[in-house]
Design a protein around this nucleic acid. Structure first.
Lengths: 228, 228
DNA sequence: ACGTCATTTGACCATTTGGTCAAACTTATA
DNA sequence: TATAAGTTTGACCAAATGGTCAAATGACGT
Protein backbone atom coordinates (compact mmCIF):
# COMPACT_ATOMS: atom_id res chain seq x y z
CA UNK A 1 0.00 0.00 0.00
CA UNK A 2 3.06 2.29 0.04
CA UNK A 3 3.24 2.54 -3.72
CA UNK A 4 -0.09 4.08 -4.58
CA UNK A 5 1.18 5.88 -7.61
CA UNK A 6 4.21 7.75 -8.76
CA UNK A 7 4.01 11.44 -9.21
CA UNK A 8 4.85 12.79 -12.60
CA UNK A 9 7.19 15.48 -11.39
CA UNK A 10 10.35 14.82 -9.44
CA UNK A 11 10.40 11.44 -7.77
CA UNK A 12 9.52 12.52 -4.29
CA UNK A 13 12.57 13.34 -2.26
CA UNK A 14 10.66 13.32 0.97
CA UNK A 15 10.30 9.57 1.07
CA UNK A 16 11.32 7.73 4.13
CA UNK A 17 14.60 5.85 3.75
CA UNK A 18 14.48 3.75 0.57
CA UNK A 19 13.75 0.43 2.14
CA UNK A 20 13.70 -1.40 5.42
CA UNK A 21 15.87 0.83 7.56
CA UNK A 22 19.27 -0.86 8.07
CA UNK A 23 18.31 -1.35 11.70
CA UNK A 24 21.52 0.38 12.71
CA UNK A 25 20.78 3.96 11.67
CA UNK A 26 17.44 3.78 13.47
CA UNK A 27 18.95 6.07 16.04
CA UNK A 28 16.63 8.62 17.57
CA UNK A 29 13.52 7.98 15.54
CA UNK A 30 11.60 10.25 17.88
CA UNK A 31 12.54 13.63 16.54
CA UNK A 32 11.94 12.91 12.87
CA UNK A 33 8.70 11.03 13.38
CA UNK A 34 7.23 13.50 15.80
CA UNK A 35 8.28 16.56 13.82
CA UNK A 36 6.95 15.20 10.57
CA UNK A 37 3.70 14.33 12.24
CA UNK A 38 3.30 17.78 13.74
CA UNK A 39 4.22 19.45 10.47
CA UNK A 40 1.84 17.35 8.43
CA UNK A 41 -0.96 18.04 10.85
CA UNK A 42 -0.31 21.76 10.81
CA UNK A 43 0.07 21.73 7.06
CA UNK A 44 -3.24 19.99 6.64
CA UNK A 45 -4.99 22.70 8.61
CA UNK A 46 -3.31 25.58 6.84
CA UNK A 47 -3.64 24.13 3.36
CA UNK A 48 -7.30 23.36 3.96
CA UNK A 49 -7.93 26.85 5.18
CA UNK A 50 -5.92 28.91 2.74
CA UNK A 51 -5.26 26.65 -0.24
CA UNK A 52 -1.85 25.85 -1.63
CA UNK A 53 -1.00 29.36 -2.72
CA UNK A 54 -2.45 31.02 0.34
CA UNK A 55 -0.63 28.80 2.78
CA UNK A 56 2.77 30.05 3.93
CA UNK A 57 5.50 27.85 5.25
CA UNK A 58 5.92 30.33 8.07
CA UNK A 59 2.32 29.86 9.17
CA UNK A 60 2.61 26.10 9.00
CA UNK A 61 5.83 26.10 10.97
CA UNK A 62 4.34 28.39 13.58
CA UNK A 63 1.28 26.16 13.97
CA UNK A 64 3.51 23.12 14.25
CA UNK A 65 5.63 24.89 16.83
CA UNK A 66 8.93 24.69 15.01
CA UNK A 67 11.12 27.32 13.36
CA UNK A 68 10.58 27.73 9.66
CA UNK A 69 14.10 26.54 8.89
CA UNK A 70 13.25 23.31 10.65
CA UNK A 71 10.26 22.80 8.42
CA UNK A 72 12.53 23.06 5.42
CA UNK A 73 14.86 20.56 7.00
CA UNK A 74 12.11 17.94 6.92
CA UNK A 75 10.34 19.04 3.77
CA UNK A 76 12.56 20.63 1.16
CA UNK A 77 9.87 22.71 -0.44
CA UNK A 78 6.33 23.81 0.20
CA UNK A 79 5.25 21.62 -2.67
CA UNK A 80 6.92 18.57 -1.14
CA UNK A 81 5.03 19.20 2.06
CA UNK A 82 1.78 19.66 0.18
CA UNK A 83 2.46 16.47 -1.72
CA UNK A 84 2.95 14.58 1.50
CA UNK A 85 -0.33 15.88 2.84
CA UNK A 86 -2.16 14.95 -0.34
CA UNK A 87 -0.71 11.48 -0.25
CA UNK A 88 -2.21 10.89 3.15
CA UNK A 89 -5.59 11.92 1.80
CA UNK A 90 -5.14 9.56 -1.08
CA UNK A 91 -4.79 6.61 1.25
CA UNK A 92 -7.90 7.59 3.14
CA UNK A 93 -9.81 7.99 -0.11
CA UNK A 94 -8.85 4.53 -1.26
CA UNK A 95 -9.61 2.99 2.10
CA UNK A 96 -13.08 4.51 1.99
CA UNK A 97 -13.57 3.08 -1.48
CA UNK A 98 -13.15 -0.50 -0.33
CA UNK A 99 -16.70 -0.94 1.03
CA UNK A 100 -17.97 -0.74 -2.50
CA UNK A 101 -16.81 -4.30 -2.92
CA UNK A 102 -18.37 -5.49 0.31
CA UNK A 103 -21.38 -6.94 -1.41
CA UNK A 104 -22.56 -7.97 -4.82
CA UNK A 105 -25.96 -6.55 -4.14
CA UNK A 106 -26.11 -3.02 -5.54
CA UNK A 107 -28.20 -1.63 -2.71
CA UNK A 108 -25.83 -2.99 -0.12
CA UNK A 109 -22.68 -2.08 -1.98
CA UNK A 110 -23.80 1.44 -2.72
CA UNK A 111 -25.10 1.99 0.79
CA UNK A 112 -21.83 0.80 2.27
CA UNK A 113 -19.81 2.92 -0.11
CA UNK A 114 -21.83 6.09 0.37
CA UNK A 115 -21.80 5.56 4.11
CA UNK A 116 -18.04 5.17 4.16
CA UNK A 117 -17.55 8.28 2.07
CA UNK A 118 -19.90 10.24 4.29
CA UNK A 119 -17.99 9.10 7.34
CA UNK A 120 -14.74 10.09 5.70
CA UNK A 121 -16.01 13.59 5.02
CA UNK A 122 -17.16 13.83 8.62
CA UNK A 123 -14.06 12.35 10.20
CA UNK A 124 -11.48 14.12 8.02
CA UNK A 125 -13.05 17.33 6.80
CA UNK A 126 -9.76 19.12 6.31
CA UNK A 127 -8.23 16.34 4.30
CA UNK A 128 -11.41 16.02 2.29
CA UNK A 129 -11.40 19.70 1.50
CA UNK A 130 -7.80 19.57 0.37
CA UNK A 131 -8.70 16.71 -1.92
CA UNK A 132 -11.56 18.65 -3.48
CA UNK A 133 -9.39 21.70 -3.94
CA UNK A 134 -6.73 19.60 -5.60
CA UNK A 135 -9.27 18.11 -8.00
CA UNK A 136 -10.74 21.53 -8.67
CA UNK A 137 -7.35 22.96 -9.55
CA UNK A 138 -6.99 20.29 -12.20
CA UNK A 139 -5.11 17.80 -10.07
CA UNK A 140 -1.65 19.31 -10.49
CA UNK A 141 -0.25 16.86 -7.97
CA UNK A 142 -2.45 13.79 -8.30
CA UNK A 143 -2.87 13.70 -12.06
CA UNK A 144 -0.91 10.51 -12.18
CA UNK A 145 -3.23 8.95 -9.64
CA UNK A 146 -6.21 9.88 -11.77
CA UNK A 147 -4.57 8.40 -14.83
CA UNK A 148 -3.72 5.09 -13.22
CA UNK A 149 -5.23 3.99 -9.93
CA UNK A 150 -8.48 5.90 -10.18
CA UNK A 151 -9.02 5.03 -13.82
CA UNK A 152 -8.55 1.37 -12.99
CA UNK A 153 -10.76 1.57 -9.93
CA UNK A 154 -13.57 3.14 -11.90
CA UNK A 155 -13.19 0.78 -14.84
CA UNK A 156 -13.49 -2.23 -12.58
CA UNK A 157 -16.52 -0.95 -10.69
CA UNK A 158 -18.09 0.21 -13.91
CA UNK A 159 -18.23 -3.46 -14.87
CA UNK A 160 -20.08 -4.29 -11.69
CA UNK A 161 -22.58 -1.56 -12.41
CA UNK A 162 -23.11 -2.79 -15.94
CA UNK A 163 -23.59 -6.30 -14.62
CA UNK A 164 -26.17 -5.11 -12.11
CA UNK A 165 -28.02 -3.28 -14.82
CA UNK A 166 -28.00 -6.33 -17.09
CA UNK A 167 -29.30 -8.40 -14.22
CA UNK A 168 -32.14 -5.95 -13.76
CA UNK A 169 -30.94 -5.00 -10.30
CA UNK A 170 -30.21 -1.42 -11.22
CA UNK A 171 -31.88 1.15 -13.39
CA UNK A 172 -29.85 1.92 -16.47
CA UNK A 173 -27.39 4.64 -15.57
CA UNK A 174 -23.92 5.59 -16.64
CA UNK A 175 -21.65 4.31 -13.91
CA UNK A 176 -19.58 7.44 -13.95
CA UNK A 177 -22.62 9.66 -13.52
CA UNK A 178 -23.41 7.61 -10.47
CA UNK A 179 -19.91 7.88 -9.06
CA UNK A 180 -19.76 11.61 -9.65
CA UNK A 181 -23.03 11.98 -7.80
CA UNK A 182 -21.75 9.97 -4.87
CA UNK A 183 -18.42 11.75 -4.73
CA UNK A 184 -19.99 15.18 -4.96
CA UNK A 185 -22.73 14.54 -2.45
CA UNK A 186 -20.48 13.06 0.17
CA UNK A 187 -17.68 15.58 -0.29
CA UNK A 188 -20.26 18.28 0.24
CA UNK A 189 -20.40 17.43 3.94
CA UNK A 190 -16.76 18.43 4.24
CA UNK A 191 -16.57 21.18 1.64
CA UNK A 192 -19.70 23.06 2.60
CA UNK A 193 -19.68 22.46 6.34
CA UNK A 194 -19.57 26.18 6.92
CA UNK A 195 -22.50 26.88 4.61
CA UNK A 196 -24.46 24.10 6.30
CA UNK A 197 -23.70 25.56 9.69
CA UNK A 198 -24.93 28.95 8.55
CA UNK A 199 -28.18 27.48 7.31
CA UNK A 200 -28.42 25.60 10.58
CA UNK A 201 -28.56 28.74 12.68
CA UNK A 202 -24.79 29.03 12.88
CA UNK A 203 -24.29 25.68 14.54
CA UNK A 204 -22.43 22.86 12.79
CA UNK A 205 -24.43 19.71 12.12
CA UNK A 206 -24.55 17.61 15.25
CA UNK A 207 -24.08 13.86 15.11
CA UNK A 208 -27.79 13.16 14.94
CA UNK A 209 -28.32 15.53 12.05
CA UNK A 210 -25.33 14.09 10.27
CA UNK A 211 -26.50 10.51 10.74
CA UNK A 212 -29.92 11.46 9.44
CA UNK A 213 -28.34 13.15 6.43
CA UNK A 214 -26.27 10.05 5.79
CA UNK A 215 -29.35 7.85 5.87
CA UNK A 216 -31.32 10.14 3.60
CA UNK A 217 -28.50 10.50 1.12
CA UNK A 218 -28.18 6.74 0.96
CA UNK A 219 -31.92 6.25 0.63
CA UNK A 220 -32.26 8.84 -2.08
CA UNK A 221 -29.40 7.70 -4.26
CA UNK A 222 -29.90 3.99 -3.74
CA UNK A 223 -33.63 4.41 -4.13
CA UNK A 224 -33.09 6.52 -7.19
CA UNK A 225 -31.16 3.83 -8.98
CA UNK A 226 -32.98 0.76 -7.75
CA UNK A 227 -36.67 1.56 -7.36
CA UNK A 228 -38.50 0.51 -10.50
CA UNK B 1 -31.82 43.05 -8.58
CA UNK B 2 -28.86 45.35 -7.97
CA UNK B 3 -29.08 45.07 -4.21
CA UNK B 4 -28.55 41.39 -3.66
CA UNK B 5 -26.95 41.80 -0.30
CA UNK B 6 -24.57 44.09 1.46
CA UNK B 7 -21.14 42.85 2.28
CA UNK B 8 -20.16 42.88 5.90
CA UNK B 9 -16.80 44.54 5.38
CA UNK B 10 -16.39 47.94 3.83
CA UNK B 11 -19.39 49.02 1.82
CA UNK B 12 -18.10 48.18 -1.58
CA UNK B 13 -16.21 51.07 -3.10
CA UNK B 14 -16.28 49.55 -6.55
CA UNK B 15 -19.91 50.28 -7.10
CA UNK B 16 -20.97 52.09 -10.16
CA UNK B 17 -22.01 55.73 -9.52
CA UNK B 18 -24.46 55.78 -6.61
CA UNK B 19 -27.62 56.11 -8.57
CA UNK B 20 -28.96 56.95 -11.99
CA UNK B 21 -25.96 58.65 -13.49
CA UNK B 22 -26.57 62.42 -13.62
CA UNK B 23 -26.78 62.10 -17.39
CA UNK B 24 -24.16 64.80 -17.69
CA UNK B 25 -21.06 63.01 -16.46
CA UNK B 26 -21.86 60.11 -18.76
CA UNK B 27 -18.95 61.29 -20.86
CA UNK B 28 -16.92 58.58 -22.52
CA UNK B 29 -18.57 55.54 -21.03
CA UNK B 30 -16.61 53.37 -23.43
CA UNK B 31 -13.28 53.13 -21.64
CA UNK B 32 -14.64 52.36 -18.20
CA UNK B 33 -17.20 49.85 -19.35
CA UNK B 34 -14.86 48.01 -21.66
CA UNK B 35 -11.95 47.98 -19.24
CA UNK B 36 -14.05 46.73 -16.38
CA UNK B 37 -15.48 44.04 -18.57
CA UNK B 38 -12.08 42.87 -19.74
CA UNK B 39 -10.69 42.96 -16.22
CA UNK B 40 -13.60 41.03 -14.76
CA UNK B 41 -13.32 38.41 -17.46
CA UNK B 42 -9.61 38.03 -16.95
CA UNK B 43 -10.06 38.00 -13.20
CA UNK B 44 -12.63 35.25 -13.45
CA UNK B 45 -10.22 33.06 -15.33
CA UNK B 46 -7.27 33.69 -13.06
CA UNK B 47 -9.23 33.40 -9.83
CA UNK B 48 -10.83 30.17 -11.01
CA UNK B 49 -7.46 28.75 -11.94
CA UNK B 50 -5.33 29.87 -9.01
CA UNK B 51 -7.72 30.79 -6.24
CA UNK B 52 -7.81 34.13 -4.49
CA UNK B 53 -4.39 33.89 -2.93
CA UNK B 54 -2.75 32.37 -5.96
CA UNK B 55 -4.06 34.96 -8.34
CA UNK B 56 -1.84 37.98 -8.87
CA UNK B 57 -3.05 41.34 -10.01
CA UNK B 58 -0.18 41.37 -12.47
CA UNK B 59 -1.40 38.17 -14.10
CA UNK B 60 -4.95 39.45 -14.29
CA UNK B 61 -3.85 42.75 -15.77
CA UNK B 62 -1.67 40.98 -18.31
CA UNK B 63 -4.54 38.69 -19.37
CA UNK B 64 -6.84 41.69 -19.64
CA UNK B 65 -4.25 43.52 -21.70
CA UNK B 66 -3.84 46.52 -19.46
CA UNK B 67 -1.00 47.72 -17.25
CA UNK B 68 -1.25 46.72 -13.64
CA UNK B 69 -1.61 50.32 -12.51
CA UNK B 70 -4.66 50.57 -14.70
CA UNK B 71 -6.23 47.60 -12.98
CA UNK B 72 -5.84 49.39 -9.68
CA UNK B 73 -7.41 52.46 -11.19
CA UNK B 74 -10.63 50.54 -11.77
CA UNK B 75 -10.46 48.20 -8.80
CA UNK B 76 -8.73 49.63 -5.76
CA UNK B 77 -7.66 46.32 -4.34
CA UNK B 78 -7.41 42.70 -5.35
CA UNK B 79 -10.18 41.96 -2.93
CA UNK B 80 -12.47 44.54 -4.52
CA UNK B 81 -11.90 42.90 -7.88
CA UNK B 82 -12.56 39.48 -6.41
CA UNK B 83 -15.68 40.79 -4.79
CA UNK B 84 -16.93 42.11 -8.10
CA UNK B 85 -16.34 38.75 -9.72
CA UNK B 86 -18.14 36.91 -6.95
CA UNK B 87 -21.08 39.25 -7.20
CA UNK B 88 -21.56 38.34 -10.83
CA UNK B 89 -21.63 34.69 -9.85
CA UNK B 90 -24.17 35.45 -7.19
CA UNK B 91 -26.58 36.83 -9.76
CA UNK B 92 -26.18 33.78 -11.94
CA UNK B 93 -26.74 31.52 -8.95
CA UNK B 94 -29.96 33.27 -8.04
CA UNK B 95 -31.17 33.30 -11.62
CA UNK B 96 -30.62 29.56 -11.82
CA UNK B 97 -32.59 29.12 -8.61
CA UNK B 98 -35.75 30.61 -10.06
CA UNK B 99 -36.91 27.47 -11.93
CA UNK B 100 -37.53 25.85 -8.59
CA UNK B 101 -40.70 27.89 -8.39
CA UNK B 102 -41.79 27.05 -11.91
CA UNK B 103 -44.20 24.40 -10.76
CA UNK B 104 -45.95 23.20 -7.67
CA UNK B 105 -45.37 19.64 -8.66
CA UNK B 106 -42.24 18.39 -6.93
CA UNK B 107 -41.07 16.29 -9.86
CA UNK B 108 -41.40 19.20 -12.22
CA UNK B 109 -39.95 21.77 -9.88
CA UNK B 110 -36.97 19.66 -8.93
CA UNK B 111 -36.31 18.63 -12.51
CA UNK B 112 -36.39 22.24 -13.65
CA UNK B 113 -34.16 23.34 -10.82
CA UNK B 114 -31.60 20.59 -11.25
CA UNK B 115 -31.59 21.16 -14.99
CA UNK B 116 -30.97 24.86 -14.55
CA UNK B 117 -28.17 24.26 -12.12
CA UNK B 118 -26.58 21.71 -14.42
CA UNK B 119 -26.78 24.17 -17.28
CA UNK B 120 -25.21 26.84 -15.14
CA UNK B 121 -22.28 24.60 -14.28
CA UNK B 122 -21.85 23.80 -17.94
CA UNK B 123 -22.24 27.35 -19.24
CA UNK B 124 -20.18 29.09 -16.56
CA UNK B 125 -17.68 26.60 -15.24
CA UNK B 126 -15.19 29.21 -14.12
CA UNK B 127 -17.73 31.22 -12.21
CA UNK B 128 -19.13 28.05 -10.70
CA UNK B 129 -15.72 26.98 -9.54
CA UNK B 130 -15.07 30.34 -7.93
CA UNK B 131 -18.36 30.01 -6.11
CA UNK B 132 -17.44 26.59 -4.76
CA UNK B 133 -14.04 27.79 -3.70
CA UNK B 134 -15.60 30.72 -1.92
CA UNK B 135 -17.99 28.45 -0.06
CA UNK B 136 -15.20 26.05 0.76
CA UNK B 137 -13.10 28.81 2.23
CA UNK B 138 -15.91 29.60 4.62
CA UNK B 139 -17.52 32.31 2.52
CA UNK B 140 -15.23 35.17 3.58
CA UNK B 141 -16.87 37.44 1.03
CA UNK B 142 -20.42 36.14 0.75
CA UNK B 143 -21.12 35.36 4.37
CA UNK B 144 -23.68 38.09 4.43
CA UNK B 145 -25.44 36.57 1.44
CA UNK B 146 -25.59 33.23 3.23
CA UNK B 147 -26.99 34.90 6.32
CA UNK B 148 -29.72 36.77 4.50
CA UNK B 149 -30.72 35.97 0.94
CA UNK B 150 -29.76 32.32 0.95
CA UNK B 151 -31.23 31.66 4.37
CA UNK B 152 -34.50 33.20 3.24
CA UNK B 153 -34.47 31.34 -0.06
CA UNK B 154 -33.97 28.04 1.67
CA UNK B 155 -36.52 28.74 4.37
CA UNK B 156 -39.18 29.51 1.79
CA UNK B 157 -38.45 26.44 -0.34
CA UNK B 158 -38.19 24.31 2.74
CA UNK B 159 -41.86 25.07 3.28
CA UNK B 160 -42.72 23.85 -0.19
CA UNK B 161 -40.84 20.64 0.46
CA UNK B 162 -42.63 20.10 3.74
CA UNK B 163 -45.93 20.75 2.01
CA UNK B 164 -45.13 18.21 -0.69
CA UNK B 165 -44.22 15.66 1.93
CA UNK B 166 -47.43 16.28 3.85
CA UNK B 167 -49.36 15.89 0.61
CA UNK B 168 -47.70 12.56 0.05
CA UNK B 169 -46.01 13.79 -3.09
CA UNK B 170 -42.52 13.42 -1.72
CA UNK B 171 -40.77 10.90 0.45
CA UNK B 172 -39.94 12.32 3.86
CA UNK B 173 -36.58 14.01 3.56
CA UNK B 174 -34.92 16.96 5.19
CA UNK B 175 -35.20 19.78 2.67
CA UNK B 176 -31.66 20.90 3.32
CA UNK B 177 -30.27 17.44 2.71
CA UNK B 178 -32.03 17.55 -0.62
CA UNK B 179 -30.67 20.97 -1.49
CA UNK B 180 -27.15 20.04 -0.53
CA UNK B 181 -27.39 17.00 -2.75
CA UNK B 182 -28.59 19.07 -5.67
CA UNK B 183 -25.99 21.79 -5.17
CA UNK B 184 -23.16 19.33 -4.82
CA UNK B 185 -24.12 17.14 -7.71
CA UNK B 186 -24.62 19.96 -10.16
CA UNK B 187 -21.54 21.90 -9.06
CA UNK B 188 -19.55 18.76 -9.65
CA UNK B 189 -19.90 19.23 -13.40
CA UNK B 190 -17.96 22.48 -13.10
CA UNK B 191 -15.62 21.63 -10.24
CA UNK B 192 -14.52 18.23 -11.41
CA UNK B 193 -14.56 18.80 -15.14
CA UNK B 194 -10.90 17.95 -15.32
CA UNK B 195 -11.31 14.72 -13.37
CA UNK B 196 -14.24 13.78 -15.58
CA UNK B 197 -12.19 14.45 -18.67
CA UNK B 198 -9.41 12.24 -17.37
CA UNK B 199 -11.84 9.40 -16.74
CA UNK B 200 -13.24 10.02 -20.18
CA UNK B 201 -10.01 9.25 -21.96
CA UNK B 202 -8.72 12.77 -21.62
CA UNK B 203 -11.58 14.37 -23.52
CA UNK B 204 -14.01 16.73 -21.83
CA UNK B 205 -17.64 15.60 -21.77
CA UNK B 206 -19.26 16.38 -25.10
CA UNK B 207 -22.74 17.83 -25.29
CA UNK B 208 -24.40 14.47 -25.70
CA UNK B 209 -22.66 13.02 -22.66
CA UNK B 210 -23.51 16.08 -20.65
CA UNK B 211 -27.16 15.99 -21.64
CA UNK B 212 -27.32 12.32 -20.72
CA UNK B 213 -25.72 13.07 -17.38
CA UNK B 214 -28.23 15.81 -16.79
CA UNK B 215 -31.12 13.47 -17.51
CA UNK B 216 -29.75 10.75 -15.30
CA UNK B 217 -29.00 13.08 -12.43
CA UNK B 218 -32.54 14.40 -12.61
CA UNK B 219 -34.01 10.92 -12.85
CA UNK B 220 -31.99 9.62 -9.95
CA UNK B 221 -32.64 12.43 -7.54
CA UNK B 222 -36.25 13.02 -8.50
CA UNK B 223 -36.86 9.30 -8.57
CA UNK B 224 -35.12 8.92 -5.25
CA UNK B 225 -37.43 11.33 -3.51
CA UNK B 226 -40.68 10.55 -5.30
CA UNK B 227 -40.81 6.82 -6.08
CA UNK B 228 -42.69 5.04 -3.34
C1' DA C 1 -7.85 77.40 -27.74
C1' DC C 2 -8.64 76.33 -23.02
C1' DG C 3 -9.74 74.24 -18.72
C1' DT C 4 -11.47 70.27 -16.64
C1' DC C 5 -11.99 65.72 -15.80
C1' DA C 6 -11.16 60.83 -16.83
C1' DT C 7 -7.66 57.72 -18.11
C1' DT C 8 -3.06 55.74 -18.81
C1' DT C 9 1.33 54.21 -17.42
C1' DG C 10 6.25 53.63 -15.98
C1' DA C 11 8.71 53.91 -12.03
C1' DC C 12 8.83 53.00 -7.49
C1' DC C 13 8.24 50.92 -2.71
C1' DA C 14 7.46 48.29 1.57
C1' DT C 15 6.35 43.86 2.79
C1' DT C 16 6.04 39.10 2.40
C1' DT C 17 7.56 34.72 0.91
C1' DG C 18 10.05 30.46 -0.13
C1' DG C 19 14.21 29.01 0.57
C1' DT C 20 19.47 28.95 2.09
C1' DC C 21 23.34 28.60 5.14
C1' DA C 22 26.58 27.98 8.53
C1' DA C 23 27.22 27.53 13.09
C1' DA C 24 25.65 25.41 17.28
C1' DC C 25 23.71 21.62 19.68
C1' DT C 26 22.35 16.69 20.77
C1' DT C 27 22.73 11.88 20.85
C1' DA C 28 24.58 7.44 20.15
C1' DT C 29 28.14 4.54 19.30
C1' DA C 30 33.17 3.00 18.77
C1' DT D 1 35.81 10.71 25.21
C1' DA D 2 36.29 11.41 20.34
C1' DT D 3 33.71 11.27 16.32
C1' DA D 4 30.18 11.18 13.24
C1' DA D 5 25.52 11.77 12.16
C1' DG D 6 21.24 13.86 12.86
C1' DT D 7 18.88 18.13 14.37
C1' DT D 8 18.00 22.99 15.53
C1' DT D 9 17.84 27.76 14.57
C1' DG D 10 18.75 32.80 13.80
C1' DA D 11 20.21 35.47 10.23
C1' DC D 12 19.99 36.29 5.71
C1' DC D 13 18.54 36.85 0.63
C1' DA D 14 16.52 37.33 -3.94
C1' DA D 15 12.24 37.41 -6.01
C1' DA D 16 7.54 38.42 -6.15
C1' DT D 17 3.57 40.99 -4.80
C1' DG D 18 -0.05 44.44 -3.79
C1' DG D 19 -0.34 48.88 -4.05
C1' DT D 20 1.10 54.10 -4.80
C1' DC D 21 2.16 58.24 -7.29
C1' DA D 22 2.90 61.84 -10.21
C1' DA D 23 3.36 63.07 -14.62
C1' DA D 24 1.55 62.51 -19.24
C1' DT D 25 -2.20 61.87 -22.45
C1' DG D 26 -6.76 62.08 -24.25
C1' DA D 27 -11.62 63.75 -24.66
C1' DC D 28 -15.07 67.00 -24.25
C1' DG D 29 -17.79 71.08 -23.43
C1' DT D 30 -17.37 76.11 -23.62
Amino acid sequence: MDQLYRSRSEAKATDLPPDATPAVRRARPTARAENERALLEAAEQIFAELGFAGATTAAIARKAGVPKANLHYYFATKEALYRAVVERVLKAWLAAAAPFDASDDPSEALAAYIGAKMDLARAMPLASRIWSAEIMRGAPIVQDFLDTTLTDWVAAREKAVVRWISAGKLKPIDARVLFYMIWATTQQYANAAHEMATLNGGRPLDDAAFEQAKRQVIETIVGGVTNF
